[in-house]
Simulated assay, not measured.
Amino acid sequence: MNNEVQLKIEGKKGFFYIDIAGQREAMMTFVFAGDDKIIIDHTEVNPGNEGKGLGKKMVAQAVAYARENGIKIIPLCPFAKSVFDKVPEFQDVL
């Protein structure tokens, strides 16, 4: 099972996603807020994939992306915010 997090950016919007066996099973959308911030606005995991850590993997990838690009994250999505609240190591990108 390959559940590697991918990234797609289209203009001022983007999303992290996980495809499993050719099917999109999880997606987390964001928008750019200026040049130095992204706002995570929605996280979705398909039914049957709850509890597998896919959402947290996407948040972790967003954190890695933010660190690599010197930007900050504003987690408006309740799920993403809950991950940031639970993982102190991610606080540096807020």
Rank of each mutant, 00 (worst) to 15 (best):
Lys37His: 08
Lys81Ala: 15
Ile74Glu: 09
Met58Lys: 04
Met58Asp: 06
Glu89Tyr: 05
Lys37Val: 03
Glu10Thr: 11
Phe90Lys: 04
Lys13Arg: 11
Gly22Phe: 01
Phe79Ser: 11
Pro78Val: 07
Lys81Phe: 09
Ala64Asp: 15
Val63Tyr: 03
Ile39Arg: 13
Val59Glu: 12
Pro78Met: 10
Ser82Trp: 07
Pro75Leu: 06
Ile40Pro: 00
Gly11Met: 00
Arg24Glu: 07
Ile74Pro: 01
Lys57His: 07
Ala80Asn: 00
Ile40Leu: 15
Pro75Phe: 03
Asp19Cys: 03
Ala60Gly: 13
Tyr17Ile: 05
Gly48Gln: 05
Glu4Gly: 07
Arg24Gly: 02
Pro78Leu: 13
Gly51Gln: 11
Asn3Phe: 00
Tyr65Ile: 09
Val45Asp: 15
Glu89Thr: 00
Asp36Phe: 08
Phe90His: 07
Gly70Cys: 08
Ile73Ala: 04
Gly34Tyr: 12
Val93Thr: 11
Leu94Pro: 10
Thr43Met: 14
Val63Glu: 06
Ala33His: 06
Gly14Asn: 10
Glu44Leu: 10
Ser82Thr: 12
Glu89Lys: 02
Asn49Thr: 03
Leu76Ser: 08
Ser82Ala: 14
Phe79His: 10
Asn3Ile: 09
Val59Thr: 14
Asp85Phe: 00
Pro47Glu: 15
Val45Gln: 15
Phe79Ala: 11
Met1Trp: 09
Gly51Ser: 10
Gly14Gln: 11
Asn2Gln: 12
Ile9Ser: 08
Val93Lys: 09
Asn69Ser: 11
Ala66His: 05
Met58Tyr: 01
Phe32Asp: 08
Phe16Leu: 11
Phe15Val: 06
Gln23Arg: 14
Ile9Gly: 07
Arg24Lys: 06
Phe84Val: 06
Asn2Glu: 15
Phe90Leu: 05
Pro75Ala: 09
Thr29Trp: 02
Ile18Met: 11
Ala21Ser: 13
Ala21Pro: 00
Ala26His: 01
Glu4Thr: 02
Val87Phe: 09
Met28Lys: 01
Asp36Val: 13
Phe30Trp: 10
Asp92Glu: 13
Pro75Asn: 12
Lys86Asp: 04
His42Ala: 11
Gly11Leu: 03
Asn2Asp: 15
Ile73Gln: 03
Tyr17Gln: 13
Ile9Phe: 03
Ala66Glu: 08
Phe32Ser: 13
Val31Arg: 15
Phe79Leu: 13
